[in-house]
């Protein structure tokens, strides 16, 4: 079927199907009559955002091999800028409209515009950081991007209009399960299609050997910047949805610790493995929540979550330094035997 359809129609149909499934899921989740469903919904949404962040950082760190520690910064740019647009421009306009379907529609249109603008500004930030710093390698790049993230945060701390140190509150609650997982799904598809293309192969070539990549006609700087722009765009979009879901932003949220968290997801999943990033993001979102109850058994009600969390991470890195899936994808790891047999056989075509 897919062969005969024009590419745009085929993709549109898949998108429509995905949207339908998401809408169904969103309604289904709302209908589940459990106490504390709002809490589970919240964790699910945060998981979706974390997956988006991990998958986008994986493009930069895992595919293009540029070790960035500034992802929280890009997320912050998207979160704050989209929240700013909504709070000062879109929400007041929406308030003037009569309640009803049209208002509901405009709310979502505004959300998409705000979040996309957030992503674009984050992409611009990615471009600006990328361009000068990509001459640097390894540790130096990590330090520069780390510095960038902190600069963004300090910058935000000094703008009163978006709340400065008080935090930015009163952002309308427009983000929801549907949007978060739509973006999450798109991020995965984008990343997957990129890595299966000449663009992705160029990323991988840069990661593997820059000198050889240049010699093969690859403009390495351009592709590094490309990876940064795409990765930070997606991080910005994730940040925008985060802002419109939690309704409150605080500069503390975007400390370098947040960047480390995302790096931990990517490294845990295996640098370069998209499914690894997804699985690790899921684990690292649920783990701290699952450990919440441990507190009840501790003397004096102390919260040992961070300790357990850290120990688990360290043990995992000691036993599997290449991450859960290494550089492979989930299905390749479990179907490894089959894969090897295939590679013995003559390729199709």
């Amino acid at each position: 079927m897919t062969k005969s359809l024009p590419w745009w129609l085929r993709d549109l149909l898949w998108l429509a199907l995905f949207v339908a499934v998401l809408v169904g899921l969103a309604y289904g989740l709302d209908a589940i009559p459990i106490v504390g469903m709002a809490y589970y919904n919240r964790i699910l949404v945060l998981m979706g955002i974390n997956i988006t962040l991990a998958v986008s950082l994986n493009i930069i760190n895992g595919h293009a091999g540029q070790f960035s520690l500034g992802h929280a910064g890009f997320m912050a740019v998207g979160a704050y800028f989209s929240a700013y647009l909504t709070f000062y421009h879109f929400a007041p306009r929406l308030d003037k409209m009569p309640a009803g379907t049209e208002q509901w529609l405009m709310q979502n249109v505004f959300l998409v515009i705000a979040v996309l603008c957030g992503g674009l500004l984050a992409a611009l930030a990615g471009y600006l950081v990328g361009l000068p710093s990509l001459r640097l390698r390894g540790d130096y790049l990590a330090i520069v991007t780390l510095g960038f993230g902190e600069i963004i945060r300090v910058f935000i701390l000094n703008i009163d209009k978006i709340g400065a140190a008080r935090g930015f509150s009163g952002i309308p609650h427009w983000g929801n399960f549907f949007w978060v997982f739509l973006v999450c799904g798109l991020a995965i598809v984008i990343s997957w299609r990129l890595v299966q293309s000449s663009v992705g192969r160029a990323f991988l070539a840069v990661r593997e050997d820059q000198v050889a990549a240049e010699a093969m006609g690859i403009d390495t700087t351009r592709y590094k910047v490309k990876a940064f722009v795409i990765g930070s765009f997606l991080a910005g979009v994730a940040g925008g949805l985060y802002a419109h879901y939690t309704m409150y932003l605080n500069p503390q949220t975007f400390m370098f610790v947040k960047s480390f968290e995302v790096v931990a997801m990517v490294v845990l999943g295996g640098l370069g493995s998209i499914s690894g990033s997804v699985v690790a993001a899921v684990i690292l979102t649920f783990l701290p929540e699952g450990l919440r109850s441990v507190k009840d058994y501790m003397p004096g009600g102390r919260d040992p979550r961070m300790v357990i969390y850290s120990i688990m991470l360290i043990v995992l890195m000691l036993t599997r330094p290449q991450g859960l899936f290494g550089r492979r994808e989930l299905w390749q790891v479990f179907g490894r035997k089959k894969k090897r047999d295939q590679s013995e056989a003559p390729p199709v075509q």
């Binding site: 590419w7 598809v189 293309s197 000449s198 192969r201 991988l204 070539a205 690859i218």
Partner: peptide, 27 residues
């Protein structure tokens, strides 16, 4: 490119002849 397949190594060698935009790749 050690961690890539033999086929991908050769494809990357032809980068200048087979490249296209990231948008074309995603769509």
């Amino acid at each position: 490119f050690k961690e890539l397949s033999v086929l991908d190594n050769v494809k990357i060698g032809g980068h200048i002849h087979y490249k296209y935009s990231a948008a074309a790749a995603v769509l």
